[in-house]
Design a protein around this nucleic acid. Structure first.
Lengths: 109, 109
DNA sequence: ACAACCTACAACCATAAGGTTGTAGTTTGA
DNA sequence: TCAAACTACAACCTTATGGTTGTAGGTTGT
């Protein structure tokens, strides 16, 4: 079960496809927050928020560090940038750059 | 049922969370393709591919135009850019710009 | 006219996703 | 020490998702 980049892309976009998770991500990008502090901001159970945090963590969009009995989550901006990079590649396809790269590669046997 | 920007974000990220759909999007960003031409490229039924195309269309990532009995799909690069813009906003949060904007807004009553 | 092609969509199935409640393990502060 | 706080996770329910097959409606070329 190789961890392909498509697997990673699946996880990243899927993690971002829920508005609660995007909101959590905004908060933890702005600064560290404990899971219960995050949970206080939403009209759902603690367990539900904890699951959302787990999804974001598995996708690599946030990481947690223990501080006493609290688990402090902070957002990983590099993961956000990696998603932006995937979109840039789509734009490149649109511009037809792939064709040019293929031509360049074909020129140097 | 107002069509909020969060609804739109949900649909966009969800549409992008499937690798087959990302691949279809790549193809239609590179150029127009009929639904059956797209379907020929995947190891699944025509109906399955047609559903993926419909998901991308509902999210606004591609549009179709009729040409005789064919339906030609082409990718919308602006929709891709709008997703990139959402990620840029997340990066802005990370840089703490929101706080500065709040300060500026607070300064002009 | 009509067979072949392209598309749309309904009905169905298995599994994943998002929510709930409940239980249990750590850590803290009095 | 021990109750309260913080977290993790299992079990369960409902709905969404991604796939299938089957049916039916336009278009085309002969």
């Amino acid at each position: 079960m190789a961890e392909t980049s498509e697997d990673r892309a699946d996880a990243l976009f899927q993690a971002l496809s829920d508005r609660t998770r995007r909101d959590i991500l905004r908060r933890v990008l702005a600064g560290e927050h404990s899971v219960s502090a995050l949970a206080a901001g939403y009209d759902m159970s603690f367990a539900a928020v904890q699951k959302h945090v787990a999804v974001l963590e598995r996708a690599g969009l946030l990481s947690k560090r223990r501080s006493g009995r609290e688990q402090l989550a902070s957002g990983d901006v590099q993961a956000v940038r990696s998603v932006a990079a995937m979109l840039d590649e789509l734009e490149d396809v649109w511009r037809g750059r792939i064709d040019r790269i293929d031509l360049l590669l074909a020129e140097e046997p």
